[in-house]
Design a protein around this nucleic acid. Structure first.
Length: 150
DNA sequence: GCCAACGTTGGC
DNA sequence: GCCAACGTTGGC
């Protein structure tokens, strides 16, 4: 799951109550489908910092509440407000995640690209822009082993 | 700041 | 249903 650290970073997550947050603002249908249909309580998540210098896999989290309507879509004051999302038939969904740990060694996108075991990650596929995407168990464990070094 | 890639919108 | 125009993402 990607976040711009200038908006919400893994360090921000470490500071909030219960180190838990709702993952709001996803406004892409493919990513929405993962949030609504695929992600389950107990799933592990890589927290990725996009649009940062450098972009990195910053740490890991766990899903503590699975797909439910993204209420920010109903709030006209919210930056993620969507007039077309019907309260009784919501368009957008979110999950809650809780911090597990911040990597001692944040794994740079360049390191991910350089690792042959991670060559098939959706993240590194050309043109990919998804902010929520699946990761295989093997990819997850490889990233974690890189992140926990040092 | 640039721009490739992609998703969405809306005229037809 | 097509597709040009436009907006966004996000690496570089």
């Amino acid at each position: 799951m990607k976040s711009e650290p200038g908006v919400f970073s893994i360090d921000d997550l470490a500071k909030v109550k219960n180190q838990t947050t709702y993952w709001d603002g996803v406004r892409n249908y493919q990513a929405r489908n993962f949030l609504r249909d695929e992600i389950k309580t107990g799933d592990k998540v890589i927290f990725y910092h996009s649009n940062s210098e450098p972009p990195v896999a910053a740490g890991i989290c766990e899903v503590v509440r699975e797909g439910y309507p993204d209420f920010t879509a109903f709030d006209s004051e919210n930056i993620h407000f969507d007039l077309k999302s019907d309260f009784d038939n919501p368009t957008w969904f979110m999950v809650d995640i809780k911090l597990i740990r911040i990597f001692k060694h944040p794994v740079a996108l360049s390191e991910i690209r350089a690792n042959k075991k991670l060559a098939n990650m959706i993240l590194v596929r050309r043109g990919n822009r998804l902010s929520v995407m699946p990761v295989t168990k093997e990819e997850f464990e490889e990233i974690v082993s890189m992140g926990d070094k040092r």
